[in-house]
Nucleic acid binder design. Structure first.
Lengths: 231, 231
DNA sequence: GCAAAAGTGTTCGCCCTACACCCATGT
DNA sequence: ACATGGGTGTAGGGCGAACACTTTTGC
């Protein structure tokens, strides 16, 4: 603690659970290893932390080689894993981050990297599968009490499009009626005033919306046990 | 990533935000440093991670020198901080944990260690103050949608006693009527059948309760956007 | 009887869901 | 006209806050 004694040091890597809704499915970005250990297995993007950088900057730097960092709409720390046996050869701590990419963008990927529907991800290298599940569950929980949807949605969208995104991320159907009312009442969404042209098959034109707040915001802070009223 | 190249390593410490309700106040366990850096400042308990141990075991080991580990009713990871300047002399990553101690127990502490009301903690060593705030806020949030109260309460208690614990932890008044109904409806509490003897001053004897589940449980998972009904 | 503390009944409002109905457009 | 998809009205249920009222004790 004083900085004068000798003490052990460890390798430290960052890992990214990158999620995006693609074609109606929540997908996870993985790359395929070619060298042991776990050659051939799919793994989370990431890499070793450099001497002068914070964990967050490190994960952004490593991601820049996989997806354009400017396309990341959200990045938050998930947790740090430390089991001594998680890497077969050396003691390597890993801090995982959850990153989100808005629907619609399609970043160019290196050849070893691709998107996988998150419910199909079974065998992964190391403990990456459990980290991916943790990221998916964190996203699902926060969709219901924060405005985190902004990080999955394109800049402008109809309620039907947003409904599809929420349904894919949550893994169950979502009613457009209720989604609209909940998010409007909470002032998470605002109408842009524009409308879309309907399909050839007809139908009423849909109003366009955007997320009011560009950043992360908790919208339903005290579900219960809230402070007594001011009276 | 392959384990064969050279890569940088770092010191890693664990830090514990230990909270307990004492005399109607939410208190934080701190020890006073005697050596630089930050000599004289109050700091979170913790220490360096040993070669073969996980972060959680490490924090439990370090805590054993401050409070008896058997008295810890809850321990969860808060996050990892990594700013290169957080320690003036060396690169030192730190993973913080939130630990809870039930009301009523009064562990013997070493002379440099004591409890401080969490709202009075102002100047701390390093970035420990921000970590303490993060721990306090995590506790407050989880009290409202999980059964985490079990980790702050003694094994048996009256509603009035539990109300005082929740009020201290949340930082605002809590109505015993509503606390009782909410926690009973959610089946977080169950009556033991016993009652307490009233004070010399009279009053109806209070029923005793306990938490139904000894472990952590989310009780209000889907506040909104829940899955459609089974019909 | 009276004070004090615990527990219950009841009202109210808010939020979310579900479902029926209305609206705007293309063919 | 009618099919199609978007949007609105409305009723119902559940939950939690507030507050009055009842119950059970000691003095």
């Amino acid at each position: 603690m004083t900085g004068h004694e000798e003490f052990p040091t460890y390798g430290h890597e960052v890992l990214a659970v990158i999620l995006q809704v693609r074609a109606g499915r929540l997908c996870l970005l993985l790359w395929q290893r070619t060298e042991p250990p776990h050659a051939g297995a799919w793994a989370l993007p990431g890499g070793v932390v450099g001497p002068g950088e914070t964990l967050e900057l490190s994960v952004r730097r490593h991601l820049a080689t996989k997806v354009d960092v400017r396309e990341l709409s959200h990045l938050e720390q998930l947790g740090t894993v430390s089991e001594p046996g998680r890497h077969p050869e050396l003691r390597l701590l890993a801090t995982a981050y959850l990153g989100l990419v808005p629907a619609g963008v399609d970043p160019v990927l290196p050849p070893d990297t691709s998107w996988h529907p998150v419910h199909e991800v079974l065998r992964t290298a190391f403990d990456h599968g459990a980290l991916a599940i943790a990221g998916r569950d964190r996203l699902r929980a926060k969709l219901s009490y924060t405005n985190l949807g902004y990080a999955l949605a394109p800049p402008r969208f109809t309620i039907a499009e947003l409904r599809a995104i929420y349904a894919a991320a949550l893994g169950h159907d979502v009613s457009p009626t209720n989604l609209r009312r909940v998010l409007l009442r909470r002032q998470v969404l605002e109408p842009t005033g524009e409308t879309t042209r309907p399909d050839r098959t007809g139908g009423r034109p849909a109003a366009c919306f955007r997320f009011r707040d560009g950043g992360y915001r908790v919208t339903d802070q005290f579900a219960v046990l809230r402070p007594p009223s001011a009276n």
